[in-house]
Structure formats: structure tokens, C-alpha cells
């Protein structure tokens, strides 16, 4: 799986980076590298089956603690 992930990211880099360097789009290259690096780190953790905190569950918990009572009182739950 990790090998597959490396191949995929290698392909993305090979696809994008030469063109960016050729056109001297440094700002774009930095944005690309930072975002892709973040994506690589996170997807590597997912592949290694590390438990990442889920944004959705975080939002769900937050909404439940703050609004559940209100919505029950309003009669919609």
C-alpha cells in the first residue's frame, strides 16, 4: 500500500513540477509543494492505519453539545 501511495505521489509530482519549473512559477510551486506535502503526510498516516481525528465527528460533537437541547425543545428531534 505504501509503495502504491509513493508511486501515486511520484506520478503527481512528475506530472506537475517540470512544467512549473520550466515556466518559473515559483509561487505556484511553493503552494503546490506545501499542500501536497500536507496531503502526503495525512494519507501516509491513513495508509499506516493511524487513527486520525475526523473533522466530521468533531463538528458533529460540537453541534450536539450546543444545539441538541434547543432542537429537542423546539420539537424537531
Amino acid at each position: 500500500m505504501v509503495v502504491l501511495l509513493l508511486v501515486a505521489f511520484g506520478a503527481i509530482i512528475l506530472f506537475e513540477v517540470p512544467g512549473l519549473i520550466h515556466k518559473a512559477y515559483w509561487r505556484e510551486l511553493i503552494a503546490f509543494s506545501v499542500l501536497l506535502g500536507l496531503g502526503f503526510g495525512l494519507s501516509l498516516l491513513l495508509t499506516l492505519e493511524v487513527e486520525l481525528p475526523s473533522v466530521t465527528l468533531g463538528i458533529l460533537r460540537f453541534m450536539e453539545t450546543h444545539f441538541e437541547g434547543l432542537l429537542k425543545a423546539w420539537g424537531v428531534f
Partner: peptide, 9 residues
């Protein structure tokens, strides 16, 4: 260049 990195995220 942002399409793939954001896709990964």
C-alpha cells in the same frame, strides 16, 4: 497545480 494536492486532501 493546486488541483491534485487539494484532491489528495
Amino acid at each position: 497545480p493546486l488541483v491534485f494536492p487539494i484532491g489528495v486532501l
